[in-house]
Structures are given as structure tokens and as C-alpha cells.
Simulated scan of single mutants.
Amino acid sequence: MLNKNEIGAFLLRVVLGIVFLAHGAAKFQGGIENIVGWFDSIGLLGGLAYIVATIELVGGIALILGIGTRIVSALIGIIMIGAIFTVQLAAGFLDGYAYDLVLLMIAVYLVLNGSKMLSLGQLFFKGQENNKPFAKSA
């Protein structure tokens, strides 16, 4: 029987992966140098643009495949916190940080709960307790 919670986590994982794959690809396709310049213009270290774009692109692929879901989601969560506080907060809720807040909460959910359904990570680490970070060990 299918577990409704696992189906939900799978859907959240794949959608978050698709969103960040698209954002990361757009940063590289549009000219990462432009993103570096924009980061500089808002007072961030320009080189950080390479890290953010790479996490978005590679992390998006990893989420879709179900590899390192908790770690990738944590990194995406950090990016979303940064985006909210450096750019979106000043624009207000609807015009600014509402979308980023939703993405942040999806990432937090995946950090806390993981996602094993159709996950390559589950195949590689089957039987290990890596999918239960808060489980007590004997």
C-alpha cells in the first residue's frame, strides 16, 4: 500500500528540484557574469553567485534523483534565507518574499522528513539509518 506521506514528500522533492534546476540553469544560460555583477551591486561577494548557481543546478538534479535530499534541501534553505533577507524582504510579502518563503518551507520539510520514494539515495543506502536523523541509536 502506498504511504500518503511518502507520496507527498516525493512530490515536494521533485517539484523543488525542478524549480531549482531551472533557476540554476537560467543563471548559467543568461551569463553567470551578469549574476556576479548583480551580487556585487547588492553588496554580496560576487563569487558567491557561482556557488549559489551551482547549488541550484546540481542540487536541483540531485533532488529530482533523490540523492542527498536532506543535505541539498539544507543548502537550498540557506540560499532562500539569504534571498529573503538580502533582496525580497524590502519588497514586502506578496511582491517579495512569499514565493521564497514557500520554497524555504518545502526545503525545511525535506530536511526534517527526507524523501525515500523513487530515490536513488534509498537504493545506495538501503537499510541504513541515514533517513532518520532524529532516531535514537542503541
Rank of each mutant, 00 (worst) to 15 (best):
G31H: 09
G31M: 09
G31A: 10
G31K: 11
I32H: 07
I32S: 09
I32A: 09
E33Q: 09
I35T: 15
V36R: 01
V36F: 01
G37W: 03
I42G: 02
G43C: 05
L44K: 11
L45H: 10
G47F: 07
L48I: 15
A49F: 02
A49R: 05
Y50V: 10
Y50H: 12
A53D: 10
T54K: 04
I55R: 05
E56S: 12
L57T: 14
L57M: 11
G59T: 10
I61M: 14
L63I: 08
I64Y: 02
I64R: 05
I64Q: 04
L65S: 14
L65Q: 13
G66F: 02
I67P: 11
R70P: 13
I71L: 15
I71H: 03
S73A: 15
S73N: 12
L75Q: 02
I76C: 01
M80E: 00
I81D: 08
G82P: 10
A83N: 11
T86S: 14
T86G: 14
L89F: 12
L89Y: 11
A91D: 08
A91M: 03
G92S: 06
D95L: 07
D95V: 04
G96E: 03
A98C: 06
A98R: 12
Y99F: 08
D100E: 12
L101I: 14
L103Q: 00
L104A: 06
I106V: 15
I106R: 05
A107R: 09
V108N: 00
V108M: 02
N113V: 11
G114V: 08
G114Q: 13
G114I: 12
G114L: 14
S115Q: 02
K116T: 14
K116E: 10
S119Q: 12
S119M: 12
L120A: 09
L120P: 14
Q122P: 06
F124H: 06
F124L: 14
K126V: 05
K126C: 03
G127S: 03
Q128F: 06
N131P: 04
N131V: 06
K132F: 03
A135G: 09
A135L: 11
A135F: 08
